[in-house]
Amino acid sequence: MSRQKYESPTTNAVGLGFWVYLMTDLMLFATLFATYGVLRGNTAGGPAGHDIFSLKLVFAETIILLVSSLTAGLALLSAHAGRKTRMLQLLVITGVLGALFLGLEINEFRVLLADGHSWQNSAFLSSYFTLVGTHGLHIFAGLIWLVATVWYALKRPLSPRFMQRLTMFSLFWHFLDLVWVCIFSIVYLMGVLA
C-alpha cells in the first residue's frame, strides 16, 4: 500500500476540540484512579483484590481489546487508501471484539455479585466497580458510535467529513485501550500481588 501522509487529528478546530475532550476524559479517569488508590485497602473485613480477581480472564480481556485497537487503526488506514470494503470488514471485527470484551466484563461483574461481592460491601469494591464500570461504559458508548459509523459508511461514499469522524473514533478507541492498560496493571496485576 502506498505511504499515506498522516493527517494529524489536531490540524483543525474540530480535531483539536475532540482531543481536548479526550484529555478531560483522562482527568475523569485520573480522579477515579486516585479514589481507587486511596480506598483499595479499605475492604471492611471483606475480600481484597487478590481474593476475587481472575487474572486469566482479565488477561484475555486485555488481549482482545489490544487486537481491537489494532483493527480500528488498520480500518482508518484502509479508509485513507480508499478501500471501503476492507475498512468495513475491519470495523466489524473491531466491534465484535469490543462486544466480546464488554461481555466478559459484564460476566465478571455478574460472578462477583453472585458471590456476594457487591459495590455496597466495602469502599474497595465501590471504587473498583466505579473505575472499571466507567471504562466499560465508555466501551459501550464506543460500540454505539461504531455501529453508527458502519451504518453511515454503508450508504455513503468516503467523504472528508466521514474521514474526520472515523479518525476521531479510532482516537477514542485507542484512548480506551490506553486507559485499560493502566487498569490492567494497577488494579489487577498489582491487586493480585498485594
Binding site: 482531543w19 483522562l26 485520573a30 486516585a34 488508590g37
Partner: peptide, 20 residues
C-alpha cells in the same frame, strides 16, 4: 496534541499522587 497531553498528565499525576 502532545503538549496538551503532557500538561494533562502532570495534572493527573498531582491529583493521583497528592490524593494517595
Amino acid at each position: 496534541s502532545l503538549q496538551i497531553m503532557l500538561f494533562v498528565l502532570v495534572m493527573a499525576a498531582i491529583v493521583v499522587g497528592g490524593s494517595i
